[in-house]
Design a binder for these strands. Sequence first.
DNA 1: CGACGAAGTTATCACCTGTAGACTTGTCGG
DNA 2: CCGACAAGTCTACAGGTGATAACTTCGTCG
Lengths: 192, 192
Amino acid sequence: MTRSTPRPRNAAATRQAILDSAVVAFTRHGYDGVGVREIAAEAGVTAMLVNRYFGSKEGLFTEVVDVSFAPATMVPADPAALAEQTARALVERTGPQADHLGPFELMLKSAANPRAAEIIRAGIQKHVGARFAAALTGPQAGERAELGLALLAGTWLMRRLIGTPGLRDADPESLVARVTRMLAVVVEPPSR
Amino acid sequence: MTRSTPRPRNAAATRQAILDSAVVAFTRHGYDGVGVREIAAEAGVTAMLVNRYFGSKEGLFTEVVDVSFAPATMVPADPAALAEQTARALVERTGPQADHLGPFELMLKSAANPRAAEIIRAGIQKHVGARFAAALTGPQAGERAELGLALLAGTWLMRRLIGTPGLRDADPESLVARVTRMLAVVVEPPSR
DNA sequence: CGACGAAGTTATCACCTGTAGACTTGTCGG
DNA sequence: CCGACAAGTCTACAGGTGATAACTTCGTCG
C-alpha cells in the first residue's frame, strides 16, 4: 500500500529541493544576482527542471516569496509587548553573526528589479500586511503597520546589508530600547 | 592666452556627460540593472570611453555615489524643527509623481550587490553620516543618526519601490505627523 | 605646416543569461 | 517481463555582459 519506494523518480521531492535551493539563493543574492543554472546545480539537477516545474524564473521567484513570507514573520501576539519583542528580534537577527536569511533580506536584495518588487508587494499584502495590521488596533492600522515594517526593513538594510558602523557597533540593548520607542509610535493606538 | 577653443576634442565635457548619464541610469535601475553600453549610449559615446575615463564600471559607480551623496541630503539646519522638516521632505519626495531620483533610490536599488553596497557604505560615511550626526547632539549620535536614516530609507523602500498600499494611499499630513514622532525619538538628545 | 598625442571608434573576446526542443533513462502497471 | 509514460538530461540558441587591443580621426603646438 504505502509504496516501498516513496516516489517514481522523485517527482515532488525534486521540486522541493529546487524550491529550497531557490529560497537560499534568492535571499542571498537577490533576483538578478543568481541564475537558474546556479539554483538547479545546488539542488542537484539541471536548469531545465526549473522551467519544467515552475514555468520560468519569475514563477519560481513567486513561489519563493510565498513560502518565505508565509511563516510568522516576527509578529508576536501580545500587543502590549509587541514593540519591545519586535525590536529585540530585529536586533538579534541583524547582529554580527546572524545567518538567519529572513524575508527582509529577500525583499531588500530583490527590490531593484521592478517585476520582483511587484511580486514582493503581492506577497506582503497576502501574508505580512494583514497579520501585522490585525495585531494593531485603532484607525490607520495599515499605514501604521507598514511604517513599522519600513523601520524594520530600513534598519535591516543599514545594519546588515550596508553595514553602517554606527548601527553595526551599537550596543544591542541601547538599540533595542530606541527601536522600541520608535515602534511604540505606530503600535500604540492614537489615543487622542 | 586663454584658449579660444575651450578644450581639444571635448575632453572633460564628455567625461561629465558620461557621469551624468550614469547617475540617472544607476539610480533608476541599480548597479546590476544597467550596462556600460546603455550608459555610454545615453551620453552619446561608445562604451569604451567609460573604461577610458573611469577605469571600470565599478570606478564609475564609485564616482556616481560620491556626487550623488555629496549635495545636502535633506538635512535642515535647525535641530528643533529637524524632525518635522525631514519627515515632510521625505513624504513629498516619495509621493505618487515623485521624479526626484535621490541618493536613497540609488542606495536601495544597488544594495543587492555586495561590491556596490561597500561603495555606498563608504559614501555614506564620507558625506551623510558625518553631516547628519553633526546636527544631532548628545551621546550615541552616530547610532541615532543612522537609525533615522534607516527609517527614511525603509519608508522610501516601502512607499516608492515596493509600493505598499497602506503607505502609498496614506494621507500625507498623517504620514508626516507620524514620521515626525518617530524621528523625534532619535533627534531629541536623550535627556535623562 | 606637419607631426605627435589625445579622443574616439570598430572588432572582438570569453563568458553568462533564460528558455526551448529533442533526446535518454528509469520505474511502475499490467 | 515489457511497454508506456513520466523524470531528467543534452544540445543549442539568440542575446547580453564587461573588458581589451588595435585602429582611425581630430586638434594643437613647435
